[in-house]
Simulated assay, not measured.
Amino acid sequence: MRVLHVITGLAAGGAEQQLLLTIRHLPESVDCEVAALTNPGSVAAALRAEGVTVHELAMRGNRDLAVLPRLVKLIRRGRYDVVHTHLYRAGLYGRLAARLAGVRTVVATEHSLHAGTIEGRSVGAGVKSLYLAAERLGVTTVAVSGRVAGTLADWGVPAQRVAVLPNGIEAASFAVPWNQRTLVRRKLGIAANALVVGAVGRLVPGKRFEVLVEALTVLPEVVLLVVGEGPERAALTELAREHGVGARVLLIGERTDVPELLSAMDVLAAPSVEETFGLAVLEGLAAGLPVLHSGCPALEELPAAAAPGARKLPSTVAAYQEALLALGPAPLGVPLPRPPAVAHYDIVRTAAQLGELYERLGRSERPVPAGRES
């Protein structure tokens, strides 16, 4: 089965990383290529390094309609069985191009949809109408959590057109030897006996990393290690300076060695309330860390016993200060046992489910042979 994944860009965001991991673990019977409308970043390089063909369509902006015939031509030439789109812009152009190219099995994954926002942007009547028109060009929309499926239902997408297929993490990659933490800390300039609070994600307002910066004001000697890049870097740096904690806030940018960096942390903190899944929280649990979070649909849809190392808090400075003070000044001695939630969301499992979805949809979309109609 030949599948073309169409995605808006391939920088190191959550949806892009999910695509990389999913392709890596799909069944061998599924042959994938990727088309990036714009911004072929670090994930494009990672895909190519693993032998995946990546097509760059050089789209110049949201209204660059010239990309449509290029994408139609690519799909026709590739003779794909499935076109699978990711992210809003790719969902609009990719589903239309697939239909124009004659592909019957058109799937879209909805990675980041809330009641009033999509991918962090406010949704007005025009955007919503355009979204729903494009959705009808596909056969199935994949929701990465029950929360996203609920939003799709509220928007008017029929339940029979929605499949809940969660994101996943590459659980095995987080089995970093615990004795490496001292080495990783040394490379980062962090003392071996420091208590390190970690955070992972794009530096955007919705992640609320400013809560953690302000929390340091009553946590002497605690280091905040933030892995990620984005437009809020300057604001976070200035906030840390204003509060006199600049030397203890390490914004180390976009990294590909997240499992190793997690081994240098003592606790993972995720104060965002806008998550549609919560990958960073699961990664922290896979690395054996206690986790403080303010919203993780992936865990909220499981029994509490599935993640005993995770604790949900209000997304306030006071709540995080209290929880971090309760940990005490000593660093984590040994990693926590991996909770059942990690196995539940292992990418090996979720990629297999996606492969089954492709097969099922492919069978249902095949034309019925003459004389076989019921």
Rank of each mutant, 00 (worst) to 15 (best):
D257F: 14
R248Q: 04
G228C: 02
M265N: 02
V245Y: 03
G230V: 03
V227S: 05
D266C: 09
I252A: 04
P259C: 06
V223S: 06
T256A: 15
I252T: 04
E221H: 13
R241S: 10
R248D: 03
E260P: 12
V227F: 06
E221T: 13
H243P: 05
V226L: 12
S263K: 13
S263Q: 10
E260R: 13
E232N: 07
A234K: 13
G230D: 04
A269E: 04
V226H: 01
S263Y: 08
L268T: 02
R255M: 13
R248C: 00
V249Y: 01
D266A: 08
D257R: 00
V245K: 01
L239P: 00
A240G: 10
V227C: 00
E254L: 14
A240C: 07
L251E: 02
L239Y: 03
H243I: 01
V258Q: 06
L250P: 06
L236R: 02
E242M: 02
L250W: 05
D257S: 10
A234F: 02
V227L: 15
V245H: 02
V226W: 05
E254K: 15
L250Q: 12
A264M: 11
L225V: 01
E229F: 10
R255Q: 13
G246R: 10
L250R: 12
E229R: 15
V227K: 09
R248S: 00
E229T: 08
P259W: 14
G244W: 04
L261G: 11
E260Y: 15
V249N: 10
E221A: 11
E238S: 12
G246T: 00
D257I: 04
I252R: 02
V258R: 12
R241W: 14
G230C: 02
L236T: 07
E232D: 12
E221V: 07
V267E: 05
V249T: 06
E242I: 08
G246H: 06
H243Q: 10
R248I: 08
L224E: 10
G230F: 05
D266V: 09
G228V: 03
V249K: 06
E242N: 13
L224T: 01
H243M: 11
E221N: 14
L250D: 01
A234G: 07
E221Y: 11
L268Q: 10
M265F: 03
S263A: 13
G246P: 01
L251A: 01
V227Y: 13
A264K: 06
V223A: 06
R255T: 11
A234V: 09
V227Q: 08
E254R: 11
P259K: 00
E221R: 15
V245R: 11
V249I: 07
A264R: 05
E232R: 14
T256S: 14
L224C: 01
T256H: 15
V245M: 01
R233P: 05
A235I: 09
A240F: 05
P259Q: 10
E229I: 06
I252N: 06
V223Y: 00
P231C: 09
V223M: 11
P231R: 15
A235Y: 14
E254W: 07
G253P: 05
G253V: 08
V223H: 08
L236Y: 11
G244R: 02
V249W: 03
L239W: 08
L262C: 14
L224S: 06
L225I: 03
V226N: 00
E229L: 04
A247Y: 00
R233L: 11
T237I: 08
V258E: 04
